[in-house]
Computed example of a mutant assay.
Amino acid sequence: MKTNIGISETNTAEVAHELSKILADEFVLYTKARNAHWNVEGPDFVNKHLFFETQYNELADIVDNVAERIRQLGHYAPATLGAYLELTELTEIHRQRNDGIGFIKELLEDHEHIIFTLRKHIGAFASQYHDEGTSDFITGLMEKHEKMAWFLRAHLQ
């Protein structure tokens, strides 16, 4: 059934495409947080293991919400690893040491990248595509990433 929410099909398609790229970034970041949780080593293991668990749980909710926003617009969310790797702007880093600080720096860079991406789309979604709902939605996502980045940054002080 056609989605009738007051936004043209062309505009919902454009917004869904941009959200698909954001979803891919979110999923890659989620996977990297899982990697940090599973593989962190060092004298602060327990603290970092639990910290990364908190991060990936928050990211799991974000991934689900972005995919559901795409569906609300009447489009299908990408849901394969291949699609995510084609759409993401993030990279996988292969490290030689699995220390907490290294994982934190890497995750922080990715959060900051996503914050910049979301900030770039807030105005465009509202003004260019007439989708204030998605603009508001990604503003909330940006705030979540800003908080998560702050928590990561605090470990580097």
Rank of each mutant, 00 (worst) to 15 (best):
W38I: 07
Q55F: 04
A60R: 12
E41W: 02
E9P: 04
V28A: 07
A33G: 00
F52C: 08
L29A: 12
K32Q: 11
N11A: 12
W38P: 13
N35I: 06
I5K: 13
A16L: 09
E18F: 03
D64H: 02
Q55M: 13
D64Q: 14
A16Y: 00
K48F: 12
Y76R: 01
T12W: 00
Q72K: 14
G74A: 02
E26K: 15
H49A: 10
N4T: 10
I62Y: 03
A79M: 08
K32D: 04
F51S: 09
F27S: 11
N65V: 07
A16H: 03
Y76E: 06
P78T: 07
E58P: 01
L81F: 12
V40D: 13
Q55I: 14
S8A: 06
P43T: 10
N39M: 14
E58S: 15
G6I: 02
E68Q: 12
G42N: 08
A77V: 11
S20A: 15
L81P: 06
H75R: 04
E53Q: 15
N57C: 05
L50W: 00
P43W: 09
L81I: 12
G74V: 02
D61N: 14
K48L: 15
L73M: 04
L29C: 08
N57R: 12
L81A: 10
F51L: 15
V15S: 00
N39R: 12
N11Y: 05
H17V: 00
K32L: 02
Y56Q: 13
Q72I: 10
S8E: 09
R69A: 05
N65G: 04
V63T: 14
A33V: 05
N35Y: 01
R69F: 01
L23G: 08
F27C: 09
E68A: 04
R34M: 08
E9Y: 00
P78C: 06
A60Y: 05
S8M: 05
Y56A: 07
D64E: 14
N39T: 03
L23K: 12
L73H: 01
N4S: 03
A77Y: 13
D25S: 14
E53D: 15
T10W: 00
A67K: 04
G74S: 03
R71G: 02
H17G: 00
D44M: 05
N57D: 12
R71V: 07
G6R: 03
H49P: 09
A24S: 08
V46Q: 15
V40C: 08
D44Q: 14
T31P: 01
V66I: 15
N57W: 06
A36Y: 07
E26W: 10
Y56H: 13
H75D: 02
G74W: 01
I70C: 02
